[in-house]
């Protein structure tokens, strides 16, 4: 761990200004502290935002919910309103980490988790995300947990969050304040970046930006499922996860919102695939066609080839459940 300067912010302005001056924001620290100990991240300054409030869950006028950036994952998962009206979010949160980590991890911090790529974590290995231009060892190395969609020559890392996958399916917005005191709200769809040639940038936060809240739109209703496939029963990152919100009208699918974890550098969503589903009568054939669209550009790198059939199988099973249709005989 590199020696660093630590300051506690008492106002959001403290935090955003410090950010402009190069400070790194720390909230729960469940990921950042580990990365600092390994010197994967070595900030010279930390600005602690834990005293900023930002820990309320409030109903917004439009029937939605505003979740303060510092709301712990465990509180959010247990919130009665979330469990009732946005259950996919509660389920995704409880599928992540452990009880102890969820008590400490925050809503804003969860969005900013770094990848679990083994090579990113090992400072003796080249990694374009950790050290731009040094190369990617994962492509030709052991890449069981890596991405199959939206990868680049420079990076095949995945985003590890469960919560963010549910938020992506829910069309959440991320509320951000900058050092000028300006607030903007961007859809979570536009919050994350694909690696392209700049894998060191995970998202669209700029120096001085502070996530102040995440907002959920009015409840979508329907069937809400979070299915996480992983190597052990608990305390493992998703190989593939699916957050699904599906509503039916009669025997047809009225709306389908599907987001995927474990597949890409960001929670993945495919409008074209959802268009295949909407208005159609659920069937295994339909689900296969949806999977065809989702996976048409999927590429395995050896150890993670299995994610392609696994995603298809998981998607189909989730859609069967969400549409309440049985399997073909």
């Amino acid at each position: 761990m590199r020696p660093f300067e630590y300051t506690r912010a008492t106002t959001t302005r403290d935090a955003t200004r410090a950010g402009t001056d190069g400070a790194t924001i720390i909230a729960g620290g469940t990921n950042l502290l580990d990365l600092m100990k390994l010197e994967v991240m070595a900030p010279e300054r930390l600005i602690d935002i834990n005293r900023l409030g930002l820990n309320a869950i409030e109903e917004s006028g439009d029937g939605g919910l505003r979740i303060g950036a510092l709301v712990p994952n465990s509180d959010l998962a247990a919130d009665r309103r979330v469990r009732k009206d946005w259950p996919v979010l509660s389920r995704a949160l409880l599928a992540g980490a452990s009880g102890q980590l969820r008590n400490k991890a925050t809503t804003g911090g969860n969005l900013c988790q770094r990848t679990r790529c083994y090579y990113f974590y090992d400072t003796d290995m080249p990694c374009n995300k950790r050290e731009p231009g040094s190369g990617c060892q994962a492509r030709g190395g052991f890449n069981r947990i890596h991405a199959i969609l939206g990868t680049s020559e420079q990076c095949i890392a995945t985003h590890p969050s469960d919560m963010a996958v549910a938020l992506r399916a829910l069309d959440a917005m991320v509320e951000i304040e900058n050092a000028e005191g300006e607030r903007r709200s961007i859809p979570i769809a536009e919050f994350y970046r694909l690696p392209h040639g700049t894998p060191h940038l995970d998202n669209e936060l700029h120096p001085g930006d502070l996530i102040t809240a995440v907002t959920l739109p009015a409840p979508a209703g329907g069937a809400q499922i979070y299915r996480k496939v992983r190597d052990r029963a608990s305390y493992a990152f998703a190989l593939v996860s699916v957050a699904a919100i599906v509503t039916m009208e009669g025997d047809r699918i009225a709306s389908a919102s599907l987001a995927f974890g474990g597949l890409a550098h960001m929670p993945w969503r495919d409008d074209e695939m959802e268009a295949v589903l909407v208005g159609a009568t659920p069937s295994d054939d339909l689900f296969d066609r949806a999977a065809d669209v989702l996976l048409k550009d999927a590429q395995g790198y050896g150890h993670n080839d299995f994610k392609i059939p696994l995603t298809r199988r998981t998607l189909k099973a989730v859609l069967r459940d969400a549409c309440n249709v049985g399997e073909p005989a």
Partner: peptide, 18 residues
């Protein structure tokens, strides 16, 4: 020959739920 999964997040010993 380096060990890739050098921590208990990625070296999967069983947890209670397993």
């Amino acid at each position: 020959g380096h060990i890739v999964n050098r921590d208990l997040a990625e070296y999967h010993i069983p947890v209670n739920l397993d």
